[in-house]
Amino acid sequence: MSSLYEEINTPPASDIPVRRVTINVNGEARTANVEPRLLLAHLLRQGFKLTGTHTGCDTTNCGACTVLFDGRPIKSCTMFAVQADGHDVQTVEGLASASELHPLQEGFKQEHALQCGFCTPGMMMAAKALLEENLNPTEDEIRWALSGNLCRCTGYQNIVKAVLWAAEKMRAELN
């Protein structure tokens, strides 16, 4: 456990009540007591031990902490955990089933779309939001949809290819 989480968990100032929140994380109701200033990214990582959600820049730029909030992509470093009370959150851990990778994960593997892998969870969640709206995106649409996610290794080429790969597979699965 990181020192950050422990520090936030120290008894808060007496006039700031801790809140009990219940969040539907990847289809499972998770309950926690949180101080209002605890960020959603920190609750997911340090509280729920879902460390697939990464915190990169911590300043709303890089998108590594992207999760789906009620189906829409958000940067979980820029929302408080208390705001997610009663809402649905999907993280990268929710993509694969026990036996099968999600087509996006498979696409990232097939197309070698990651090197260090730090940005990958955010990339996949942003791509998932795109594919939920548009299962036949153009390369340009993919680039725009991922423009809030920074990758410092790949040059993006293979990430775009991976999303195209996943879209094709998901279309094929529909038919």
Binding site: G63, F69, R72, I74, T78, M79, A126, G148, N149
Partner: peptide, 12 residues
């Protein structure tokens, strides 16, 4: 509208 920040920020 499509030029504000980035798509993830625009969702929120």
């Amino acid at each position: 509208a499509p030029l504000v920040a980035d798509p993830i920020v625009r969702a929120r």
